[in-house]
Amino acid sequence: MSDAALARSIADEAGALLRDIRATATCSDRELGQRGDREANLLIIDRLRAARPDDFILSEESLDDRARCAARRVWIIDPLDGTREYSERLNDWAVHIGLAIDGVPASGAVALPACGRTFATDDTAPLPALPPGRPRMVVSRTRAPVIATLVAEAIGANLVPMGSAGAKAMAVVAGDAEIYLHDGGQYEWDNCAPAAVAMAAGFHASRIDGSPLVYNCIDPLLPDLLICRPEWAAPVLAAIARLRPAQGPEQPQQS
């Protein structure tokens, strides 16, 4: 089985588990999120270790084994991206299964289990035609980054509130938005799989200064991200370069 097919299979299985937990659990919202994180993480790690025993794993929900830093192949996973949305019975949460090879987001899958959709690097649709009118920029439902608001004003974009990082990135891939701009705190597991899928589908993915996304770093903090249609990459990056020095870095916030 290819890496992408494996990622898709595991993401689908973890998504089904999370749907079942949410449908049957009688615990509090907080306990629901904790149970989902824990059980999905165990399932994903078991499947990856069985299928790729020589690879390393970096997970939001597991102790970081720094031996991974010397490895070429590292699976970077978020078993439940958007725990708040999951706990509050919303639909915009995701499962991320990404594979970095030599620091590059090479393969992976993002499942949106509540929506019944999974996006993977081996099954990408042709880039849809650029829609007319104002671009749509997806941002955090609870607190949009200041830079995103400023850039949206500069390029004439409409802000679209949404939940998890995976849901926002896949909204761009699916053609439901054109830009996902985040600043203020993410980790490698928040965006490795989304970046891999977006890049495989022909979209732009980078840091917000335009530099490449690099994974399997000693410190997994990867605080900012731009995923967008290729036509919007240059205008957005130019607007960020103009606006960000005056605005300054943001404090960590929801992805």
Score class of each variant (00 low, 15 high):
64 D>H: 14
70 A>I: 02
73 R>M: 08
31 E>G: 01
97 I>T: 02
69 C>F: 13
88 E>G: 03
46 D>F: 05
39 E>C: 02
55 D>A: 15
59 S>A: 14
97 I>H: 04
98 G>A: 13
47 R>K: 15
43 L>K: 07
63 L>M: 12
88 E>A: 06
97 I>K: 06
45 I>P: 01
59 S>W: 04
68 R>Q: 10
79 P>F: 09
83 T>K: 02
90 L>I: 01
83 T>F: 02
50 A>F: 08
68 R>K: 15
53 P>R: 12
60 E>Q: 10
54 D>P: 10
80 L>G: 01
63 L>A: 15
82 G>P: 05
69 C>I: 15
70 A>E: 13
73 R>K: 14
64 D>R: 14
69 C>E: 15
37 D>Q: 06
55 D>C: 13
75 W>L: 08
55 D>G: 08
94 A>M: 07
95 V>L: 12
58 L>F: 11
96 H>I: 11
43 L>C: 09
60 E>M: 07
80 L>V: 04
85 E>I: 02
53 P>A: 13
33 G>L: 00
61 E>I: 06
30 R>V: 00
89 R>T: 05
64 D>E: 15
51 A>L: 11
98 G>Q: 13
43 L>E: 08
74 V>C: 13
46 D>S: 14
97 I>S: 06
58 L>Q: 08
52 R>Y: 11
52 R>N: 11
59 S>F: 03
91 N>V: 12
35 R>M: 03
36 G>R: 00
30 R>M: 01
60 E>V: 08
